[in-house]
């Protein structure tokens, strides 16, 4: 059948908070090396969908397959426990809008924490890996800096390095530049762009349309709790089909002022 197995596949994901339905059967499959961007109006469920892909949110219905991990949700299914979820999250990394660095640890320690505590690396190995990753995100000189002493862009780059330290198969990015001052956005997007070039499998939520067009292989449009349309970036931006996607893009293309 398929020569390249799907790296991550979320199917028919339903998620409600109380009686409020956020996801109504959202589905997405990404192959190894894919870079997929999710766009859509605020409140359309992009973050929720993304958080269902490493099960930070547990859906009420649907299935999630990521590499060798497989979860099914629905009536008669037992909710997975902490012990079952942890291995999934080792292989599916996530970077957050607000960085969520550990403030009581230096940049290097932040990156070493996962390898040390979860992967059982020795301190020497973890430190070497940490320094390599800091160099990769352009922060070799910040190893001993505490997060409070870093700029937003630097914090986010450390957070990306922290996620990379787990050597994940897939990386999830939830609006990783929207908490940043405009002049710091570029340095973070560059790091993400380099990861894309290296072939990292990534799913991104972003409002940076130009970046989405530039870096993604495919773009998906979230609307009303489902992935309403998905296709090559070219197609989505040049020939959008869904009427809501058309009007959504018009708002971005309208000249400023």
């Amino acid at each position: 059948m398929n020569a390249r197995p799907a790296t991550l596949s979320a199917t028919g994901i339903h998620k409600s908070y109380g009686s409020f339905q956020v996801l109504k059967g959202a589905s997405l499959t990404v192959e190894r090396g894919d870079v997929v961007t999710l766009i859509g109006a605020s409140g359309s469920g992009k973050s929720t969908f993304l958080r269902c892909m490493n099960l930070l949110e547990l859906p009420q219905e649907g299935t999630l397959v990521a590499g060798r991990h497989s979860f099914a949700f629905g009536k008669g299914q037992k909710a997975p426990n902490d012990a079952a979820l942890a291995p999934l999250r080792r292989d599916v990394g996530m970077v957050f809008q607000h960085f969520n660095l550990f403030p009581h640890m230096t940049a290097l320690r932040n990156i070493m924490e996962g390898p040390l505590q979860v992967n059982g690396m020795t301190p020497a190995e973890a430190a070497e890996l940490g320094r390599d990753l800091l160099a990769k995100v352009g922060l070799a000189d910040k190893a001993d800096a505490f997060p409070a002493k870093l700029s937003g862009g630097q914090k986010q780059r450390v957070a990306i390095a922290r996620a990379l330290a787990m050597k994940p198969d897939v990386m999830l990015f939830d609006e990783v530049t929207s908490a940043l001052d405009p002049e710091l956005v570029g340095e973070v997007l560059n790091v993400v762009r380099n990861l894309a070039v290296e072939g990292m499998t990534m799913i991104l939520v972003t409002h940076e349309m130009a970046f989405a067009a530039d870096v993604s292989h495919r773009v998906g449009f979230m609307n009303d709790g489902v992935l309403a349309e998905i296709g090559p970036a070219e197609e989505i931006f040049r020939r959008p089909q869904h009427p809501r996607l058309v009007s959504f893009l018009e708002r971005f293309n309208r000249p400023a002022g």
Partner: peptide, 25 residues
């Protein structure tokens, strides 16, 4: 709350997140 999530996102278990990340803070 983001500290718990950051710990989970790198595959840490609840007890370890509590001891290593939350309790020191």
């Amino acid at each position: 709350r983001g500290q718990w999530e950051a710990g989970r996102a790198i595959g840490m278990r609840q007890g370890r997140i509590f001891r290593r990340i939350v309790l020191p803070q």
